[in-house]
């Protein structure tokens, strides 16, 4: 098989998007698909500017990202120490690691009415739900990171007669860091998903609420524009996280 042009794949990718939009435009303009269900792509594009300016996208973006980062900070501050504790205490780990795995897999966001009741209709609820969804993966990956330290590195530490503190800071922690960051990335993703989700559900906050709002106002082009915008923001978020993780993997 000969070498393929490096432009072929991106061309297909881009071409599909453009093609799909063109097909949509055609179908809707011909009224085969009702413009009251799916607006013309050109209309959606046109409403982008309006949505950004009039609906205060920058401010809402800040709110959503702020809530996500707040939740992210909490999962780091709580999740990593829990992971470290369970790594150090083998019996606690055997007892509770499965519980953590269950929490990580549980659809905690379903309990959002509960959090509403407990914490009121505020950003706090959103942050807490984000935290609850993201803390377990962080703890689990932290345990995994420390537990998978290669035996030979411990031997090196002993051969250099490192104190327990030195061993932790010089060897255990740097060796575990890549896995811990995998956990943080996973946790942050869960935070973002749940933050935006809850914003839509309880109609409060930043970007999530905007979508809700525009939909209830029957501003179809605006709704689609806002959705596209949130998708773009997510993509950017994950791209940055992915890049950061790759950089760490190279060093780790």
């Amino acid at each position: 098989m000969g070498a393929r042009s490096p432009y072929l794949a991106p061309a297909i990718s881009l071409g599909t998007i453009v093609g799909a939009l063109a097909v949509m435009q055609g179908l809707i303009a011909a009224e085969i698909v009702s413009p009251y269900i799916v607006p013309l792509p050109t209309d959606i594009l046109a409403s982008f500017e309006r949505v950004v300016v009039e609906e205060g996208i920058p401010g809402r973006f800040a709110v959503t990202v702020g809530e996500t980062l707040a939740a992210g900070l909490l999962i780091m501050l709580v999740g990593i120490p829990i992971g470290l504790l369970l790594y150090r205490r083998a019996r606690l780990r055997t007892a509770f690691e499965p519980w953590l795995a269950a929490i990580a897999a549980a659809p905690l966001v379903l309990a959002y009415p509960l959090f509403l009741v407990l914490f009121g209709r505020s950003s706090l609820t959103i942050i807490v739900i984000g935290f609850a969804s993201g803390v377990a993966p962080v703890a689990l990956k932290t345990i995994e990171g420390f537990a998978s330290t290669r035996r030979v590195l411990i031997d090196v530490s002993r051969s250099f007669r490192l104190t327990p503190a030195q061993e932790f800071w010089q060897i255990l922690l740097p060796a575990a860091l890549p896995q811990i960051f995998v956990g943080l990335r996973l946790g942050l993703i869960f935070c973002l998903i749940n933050v935006v989700g809850v914003e839509v559900l309880i109609n409060l906050g930043g970007l999530g609420q905007l979508i809700n709002d525009l939909a209830e106002r029957y501003d179809l082009p605006g709704t689609y524009a806002a959705i596209s915008f949130v998708v773009l923001v997510s993509i950017l978020f994950f791209a940055i996280l992915g890049r950061g993780e790759k950089w760490l993997q190279r060093r780790g």
Partner: peptide, 18 residues
């Protein structure tokens, strides 16, 4: 325990990747 005058080179990969 390990004697300070002794240095050990291990069989496995033991450089610190970070």
């Amino acid at each position: 325990g390990p004697h300070p005058a002794v240095g050990i080179v291990f069989q496995e990969e033991s450089t610190f990747p970070w």
